[in-house]
Amino acid sequence: MAGRYAVQERFAPLGPEGQIRLAGSMAVVVGVGALGGHSAQLLARAGVGRLRLVDPDRPTLDNLHRQVLYDELDVAAQAPKVEAAAARLSAANSGIAVEPVAEALEADNAARLLDGASVVLDGLDNPAGRYVLNRACVSLGIPWVHAGLAGSSGQLLVVRPGKGPCLQCWAPEEPREPLKHSVATHGVLGPLPAVLGALQANEAIKLLAGAGDALLKGMLLVELWPPRFRELAWPGASAPCPACGSRF
């Protein structure tokens, strides 16, 4: 019988060595809703050895069109999302360790929640949390993969502290609510988080496998209605970054 990861290992840029690196890694998924549900599932199936799921919320019926780790029984049970998610992911891959943490990431608990992370995936649902996450990852030196979405569009960014621009290099000032383009005003097209969550998992796998050359370099802008994908190149710093202090 072929090994569990035989087909993935046959993808030459990953190979058996990449698989070993994934097994020895830990990914923290912060926010396990639509984006985080998709990325966590792909990382679990890819064989990332340890997954920590961080989210204080419980599933609701209006989550179900886009949050694939939950079902109607979970909505009825009203257990924290991370518990249902951990059960699903452990069933998908019993060979990895999944740690559910039903807490919100804050500035004062970030070091504890991100402790030991090889990579962090952003599944948050607001700008403020993402700026907290950016500062924490920059401070701790942990690479993270940002995505955000609303309606039929979103963006993706890989942050490697000390090696390239962070979220606040791109956008120094934290966007304050109310936003013009948000889930509250524009909803979410169901396939959008599947696309962006998969792209996040893909970048995380490259980070973990040591495939830095294949990483997304700029900011990927994704529109699905009608479809348009394009990458905005980083133009170089205009001023020192308030978060990372760098001038890439």
Partner: peptide
């Protein structure tokens, strides 16, 4: 002009 988005 593009809108960054912050839902997840």
């Amino acid at each position: 002009f593009i809108n960054a988005a912050f839902g997840g």
